[in-house]
Amino acid sequence: MSNDELDLRELHNPDIPVPEEMQSNVAITSLSSLYNWGRSRSIWPMLFGLACCAIEMIATAASRYDLSRFGMEVMRATPRQSDLMIVSGTVTKKMIVPIVRLYNQMPEPKYVLAMGACASGGGPFKEGYNVVSGVDKYVPVDVYVPGCPPTPQALLHGLIMLQKKIEQQHLGVGASVPWYGAGPSESIPVPVLGPDVIDPRHAELFRREALKGRATPTVAEALGLNPEAAAETK
């Protein structure tokens, strides 16, 4: 994020002398809480549904559970206007590419909520060949909501947890929020679809693995299970 509009570091240089260890606190604390109060009560989620959980997310947004009580009813269809990505459902390898792209396009400060077992860690479909074992393998997740699917109330609980998290963050330089530091935040390298999904961050690993001259071992091979023998005893 660019610092041109508002250089927050100016806030740390008030005219009165402030002890060094206090410098990032004094001017910021009350502003922080006011600012966080506003932020946490107007989280705009991205209108983004993946699977079964998306249906419960829509049910949460509907009249019975009513997300607008939390100021979250403004679901934006574009990542550029949203603060929160609710990953609601199974993340497949084919879909992780657009998900990372969407995440990169969201402006800071941005949050990710992994809704349901699939988004958190692969869920019941984890063993599948086209399923990513949790969206946090690629994008940082702030709140995990377990359940398959989480009921609307469980999702609301997760969103309240997120609000609490936001309220605890403060504006100080080097504090818990990364985006008030200098310069734009690094975007996440977008995965590539090859023989299987490829995380560009693994380049070095690929070089090492390629030398071994074998296909990536399955869990059975890694554990030394002999599938043939196991099948025969059945």
Partner: peptide, 27 residues
Amino acid sequence: FRGEEHNPFGHNVRYPAGFNLDNFTPQ
């Protein structure tokens, strides 16, 4: 254990033998 603990990449991925990023051009 989690499945990814037993994968060299720590992900749910499997590549053919000798696959290397250096000689791969994605579509």
